[in-house]
Design a protein around this nucleic acid. Structure first.
Lengths: 257, 257
DNA sequence: ATGACCGTTGCACATATTGCAACCAAGGAT
DNA sequence: ATCCTTGGTTGCAATATGTGCAACGGTCAT
């Protein structure tokens, strides 16, 4: 690995905590001021960091551009979107799409009652990986070894009384999810919110994404929500078929630009 | 500047266009495969790129995290938000907040009829810098020399018949904006959308951000929208006062978490 | 099976990076 | 006003670091 690049990239999360001046950066990197200066200059040239009036550095606007383009180029998302919109149309509840990537689960799309939010507002924030239905689906498909490793490594915050308490319970839940091909989150993250989700598979059968429907208790009970399961699964399967190329892109969706 | 880091960072926008394999990256960078490999590995270690099953690289999830944190750390945004929400409350239209940063204008907050969208969906996309009200406000405050330089450098796309046609017209418009202390965009970007905006200033009087109210023709005419101007300006001034520390944080806002 | 195509590894060379020391500029304290 | 501290910037020599080459190895298609 490249030491120089490694150091330069280490600056970014450091600045993410808040603005810092040259000396602070140098100290935290464990390098000479000169070195930090050159790295920061290079980052600056690429718009990754910005220098404010007080000479301190903070993250730059280019990051937005990249993040934006990155999310737009996720082809699962593009394929899935009309289906998710349809699902939302039929059940009226919030629909999520998420992917797994190296120890993180991120939402990459969301359709709410009225507004499709392309850049999900919680993107990047830690998803409740130990309880979310989509997280269970994505992790359940990992190889045995990796799944265990990830499960051991995780923290298990007790969001509610029904949150997954520890690695053992989580692995057991994942086994169930893997077995049945769908997952739920019944009040595991927020006491009053329930979700049901299903996996989206690529041509090789591996899970590439997961979608879910969420609704608060006060609107529909957990039992009623579970009645949506067939619909959710059918939607996920339809997306899977198109994604893996084994199906025509469905009937054109009028409100898809 | 650091050559290695420079090359590594050049990979990111390249991948933003879509997934690419090692050879393509190497070719477009103009370096040997080996070199590209090491750079990509380093980027990968930092989560900036992700390697999909087909071995091609694409942008990684860490970028989302960084972009998210970057926007959260903008203190203008934090201070302004409750005011913007209040403004939206009173007029019912979409409210935007934007900042200028090295030739780019980016939205950093948005409040819509019902949903506050923290991570604006268009963040990163080229803002219509030559016509948007907020852009005019931000550019109008640049130093004479820089303003001219930027104006000359820009492209002037004719979004509509009322778009700013060229640098001369733009500079003239900026002078007016600077003079009057507020700005409009009357159908300059989208034929049917009008905006009015006002500047937010720091303790030194320099413009640090700009906010605007947008509404379609069909809901309110341009004339009616202009009647909101005093409200918009008052809001911007209130934000300015708090931001520059010369005012107490206003009355506590109940729906601000 | 054979060949083409890509990604990967080890290595020798030299280039790009590093830390030092000295130089500035700004701001506070004396 | 002057000194002193703090923090950023520049030039330079030493060498650690990154580079390209060439050879290897896996995968897929013919």
């Amino acid at each position: 690995m490249s030491q120089t690049v490694d150091r330069a990239l280490s600056i970014l999360p450091l600045l993410a905590e808040g603005p810092a001046n040259l000396e602070q950066v140098a100290k935290r990197l464990g390098v000479h001021k000169t070195t930090a200066l050159r790295l920061l200059r290079t980052l600056h040239e690429h718009g990754m960091v910005y220098r404010q009036q007080d000479q301190r550095y903070r993250l730059g606007a280019r990051l937005f551009a990249l993040a934006q383009q990155a999310v737009e180029n996720l082809d699962v998302r593009e394929i899935a979107h009309p289906y998710l919109a349809g699902l939302n149309e039929q059940c009226g509840h919030t629909v999520h799409l998420a992917v797994y990537e190296e120890n993180e689960v991120v939402y990459i799309d969301k359709v709410e009652s009225r507004y499709p939010v392309r850049m999900y507002s919680r993107i990047g924030k830690p998803v409740a990986i130990t309880v979310a239905a989509v997280a269970k689906l994505l992790l359940a498909d990992l190889l045995e070894a990796e799944r265990r490793a990830v499960a051991e490594r995780l923290q298990y915050p007790a969001y509610t009384a029904r949150s997954t308490p520890n690695a053992a319970a989580f692995l057991k839940e994942l086994a169930t999810v893997r077995e049945q091909g769908w997952a739920t989150d019944l009040g595991g993250h927020e006491e009053s919110i329930n979700c049901v989700g299903a996996p989206i598979r690529g041509a090789d059968g591996r899970v590439v994404a997961a979608c879910s429907v969420s609704a608060p208790n006060v609107v529909v009970s957990a039992e009623e929500l579970l009645e949506l399961l067939p619909l959710v699964r059918r939607t996920a399967e339809a997306i899977s078929r198109e994604y893996s190329g084994s199906a025509p892109p469905a009937e054109p969706d009028p409100d898809d630009k």
